[in-house]
C-alpha cells in the first residue's frame, strides 16, 4: 500500500514475500491526464522502468504512482477495486482497445507479460458522451445505474414468494439467462463502439429477464423503459459492427442485441394487453 511519498509496506512483517524472480522491462506510457470534469485533458508521457512481467497492468500503474508521489507529482487516478475481474470497476483503453490487447480479460487481469521491453503504451479513459471524465482515467458511469433503475428488475417484495423449486426452468434456458447475467457493467462495450452505444449492456439485462419465467409479466415494459432511458442518457445507436462483443471481457454475445430489438419492437407495435393475452 502506498501512501503519499512514504511507501508503506509491512516489510518487517512479511519477510517471506520479498523474493522476486521475474523478468523486467522499461516502458513509455502516454497517459491521459485531466484535472476534473470541466478542464481540458491531454496526453502526458511518463517513463515506467523496471516493470516485472508478472505484474498486472494495474500493479504497473501502482508502481508508476508510487514513483510519481515520491517525486511530488499527482498520481494518476484510475478506477479499480476487486482486481480479480468481477467487480467491473476497472476500465482503461489501452493502445486503442478497451481492457487492452487480450480477449476476455479485464484490465486488472491483464499482465505485463503481454507487453515487451521498450514498448509505448497509450492509456486513455472510456470515451463516450454519456461517460464524462471525472479525473484522468476515471469516468462517471452512473448512466448505467439509471438504465437499470428504469426497469432492470422484477417487481417482487421481500417475503411472500413461492418456493424456489415451484417453477422448473429448463436447463438450456437457465444457462442462457445466466450467460446474459454475467455482464459486469464495466462499459467496455460503450468504449468499443463508434457510436458509444450501450445496446450490449442493456440487451444483456433485458435478455436475462426475458428468458426467465419470473421476468415474463413485465417483459415488454422493461425493454421499452430501459431503451428509453438509454436514449435519454445520450448513448448512440447500434452500429452492427460487433466491436462490443469483441471487446467484452466476459463474452456477452451479440444475440442479446437481436433479442433486445425483438423485445423492443414487440413492445412498440402491440398493446401490452395483446402481448400478454
Amino acid at each position: 500500500m502506498s501512501v503519499g511519498t512514504y511507501t508503506f509496506r509491512y516489510s518487517t512483517l512479511h519477510t517471506q514475500f520479498i523474493i522476486d524472480m521475474s523478468k523486467h522491462m522499461n516502458l513509455t506510457l502516454k497517459v491521459w491526464r485531466q484535472k476534473n470534469q470541466n478542464s481540458e485533458g491531454k496526453f502526458v508521457t511518463i517513463q515506467a522502468n523496471n516493470i516485472a512481467d508478472d505484474m498486472s497492468f494495474l500493479e504497473m500503474l501502482d508502481v508508476v504512482n508510487e514513483d510519481l508521489t515520491r517525486k511530488g507529482e499527482d498520481p494518476i487516478y484510475f478506477d479499480h477495486d476487486c482486481r480479480e475481474g468481477i467487480c467491473g470497476m476497472c476500465s482503461l483503453v489501452i493502445n486503442g482497445r478497451p481492457h487492452g490487447p487480450n480477449e476476455r480479460t479485464t484490465t486488472c487481469q491483464l499482465h505485463m507479460r503481454s507487453f515487451h521491453d521498450g514498448q509505448t503504451i497509450v492509456i486513455e479513459p472510456w470515451r463516450a458522451a454519456a461517460f464524462p471524465v471525472l479525473k484522468d482515467l476515471a469516468v462517471d458511469r452512473s448512466a448505467f445505474d439509471r438504465i437499470q433503475q428504469a426497469g432492470g428488475y422484477i417487481n417482487v417484495n421481500t417475503g411472500g414468494v413461492p418456493d424456489a423449486n415451484a417453477i422448473p426452468i429448463p436447463k438450456r434456458i437457465a444457462d442462457e439467462a445466466f450467460e446474459s447475467a454475467t455482464c459486469i457493467g464495466c462499459g467496455a462495450c460503450v468504449a468499443a463502439c463508434k457510436n458509444a452505444s450501450a445496446m450490449l449492456f442493456v440487451s444483456a439485462k433485458v435478455s436475462q429477464f426475458a428468458l426467465l419465467p419470473q421476468g415474463q409479466t413485465e417483459r415488454y415494459e422493461r425493454a421499452q423503459a430501459m431503451v428509453d432511458q438509454m436514449d435519454k442518457e445520450g448513448f448512440g445507436n447500434c452500429t452492427n459492427t460487433g466491436a462490443c462483443e469483441a471487446e467484452c471481457p466476459v463474452g456477452i454475445k451479440l444475440t442479446n442485441i437481436a433479442r433486445l430489438n425483438r423485445e423492443y419492437f414487440t413492445a412498440k407495435i402491440f398493446r401490452q394487453e395483446d402481448v400478454h393475452a
Binding site: 421481500t158 414468494v161 418456493d163 424456489a164 422448473p168 426452468i169 437457465a174 444457462d175 439467462a177
Partner: peptide, 22 residues
C-alpha cells in the same frame, strides 16, 4: 431457505439440473 426463494423470484440464475430444478 427463504433466501433461496427470494433470490429465485428476483431472477437470480442459479445452476439447474436437466429436469429444471435447482
Amino acid at each position: 431457505v427463504k433466501i433461496i426463494d427470494q433470490c429465485v423470484a428476483q431472477g437470480v440464475p442459479f445452476a439447474r439440473e436437466y429436469g429444471g430444478l435447482l
